[in-house]
């Protein structure tokens, strides 16, 4: 996968290897330890049938898969499907709308361009403290006209998430679009390609790494979002994973920490897999593109 032109060097060895490559492994291992340590707690709790989340420092003193098998009798699987559907659609929508906007900002010159770019970013900075009240009222009235976009609807929630599609993501893509040489689209234009053809067939392919990054970012942020989701999705069977986990954890007295931990471990898997899958586009995508372009 990582076979790029850079790897055609002769392999380095010995001290030079340590100075140039080896230390990177040390850092990698240390960082992974730091990343994983708190998660060990969660995994340990998930293997303990009637334990607490942070009550014990003796990790892995019990090993039982009860919590995992008990997840089957909860709505966990449904939540998982809901989350995957909602987050996938949100991520695709965000990537598409964000890329389109970034293309417009990067390739066209129009009055108010700078102002609107700034405005997009500033709008995202509004504290969403009362968002839950406002979103509830909004979806309540939208629901009277388009029931599919109203309360308790996955589509409604996706629409709310897509409201944030422009903004930081647009900026990230905009910056990346600007690094794609304009000569490419100039040449295509001279060949008679329309702006839409340039966008869909040339630019999008060249910016694949950033599309993958933005897709992942918006997937993850939708995946972990529960403040708006719990307002929109009012029924247990419609919950997303984040809402379901939040509800389990919000029980102050009898929180099912074992189930919670098991669910948290399982729910982290899609994100890791998705990153695994997208990594090939994120890393090295541009090289592939520029060779063809």
């Amino acid at each position: 996968m990582a076979t790029t032109s850079l790897e055609q060097h002769a392999p380095v060895t010995g001290l030079r290897w340590w100075r140039e490559v080896g230390w990177r492994h040390v850092i990698g291992i240390v960082m992974i330890a730091i990343c994983v340590l708190p998660l060990l707690y969660v995994i340990s709790a998930s293997l303990n049938p009637n334990g607490t989340l942070t009550g014990s420092n003796k990790l892995f003193r019990t090993f039982s898969l009860t919590n995992y098998s008990e997840l089957a009798s909860t709505d966990f699987a449904k939540w998982g499907v809901n989350s995957l559907v909602i987050c996938t659609v949100t991520a695709l929508g965000t990537v598409f709308m964000g890329a389109a906007a970034a293309y417009a900002f990067s390739r066209f010159r129009f009055s108010g361009r700078r102002a609107s770019l700034t405005a997009l970013l500033l709008i995202q900075m509004f504290p969403q403290m009362l968002a839950f009240v406002a979103i509830f009222l909004l979806l309540l009235s939208v629901g009277t006209v388009f029931p599919a976009l109203g309360l308790n609807s996955q589509l409604g929630l996706i629409a709310v998430y897509l409201g944030g599609a422009l903004g930081v993501n647009t900026f990230l893509m905009y910056g990346f679009f600007n690094t794609v040489p304009r000569e490419l689209d100039e040449a295509a234009k001279i060949d008679g390609a329309s702006h839409a053809q340039i966008f869909f067939t040339i630019i999008l392919r060249l910016v694949a790494p950033i599309l993958a990054v933005v897709g992942l970012l918006s997937f993850v942020s939708a995946y972990g979002e529960f403040v708006v989701a719990k307002v929109v999705l009012q029924r247990v069977e419609h919950y997303t994973l984040a809402v379901g986990l939040y509800v389990w954890a919000s029980d102050e007295r009898n929180a099912p920490w074992g189930l919670f931990a098991a669910a948290a471990v399982l729910s982290a898997i899609p994100v890791v897999l998705l990153f695994q899958f997208l990594q090939r586009y994120i890393v090295g995508g541009l090289f592939a593109g520029s060779v063809k372009g």
Binding site: G143, T144, V145, P147, A148, G150, L151, N152, S153, R235, H238
Partner: peptide, 8 residues
């Protein structure tokens, strides 16, 4: 459209 109540 008359279905003003929650759709679910």
């Amino acid at each position: 459209p008359a279905a003003v109540t929650t759709p679910s």
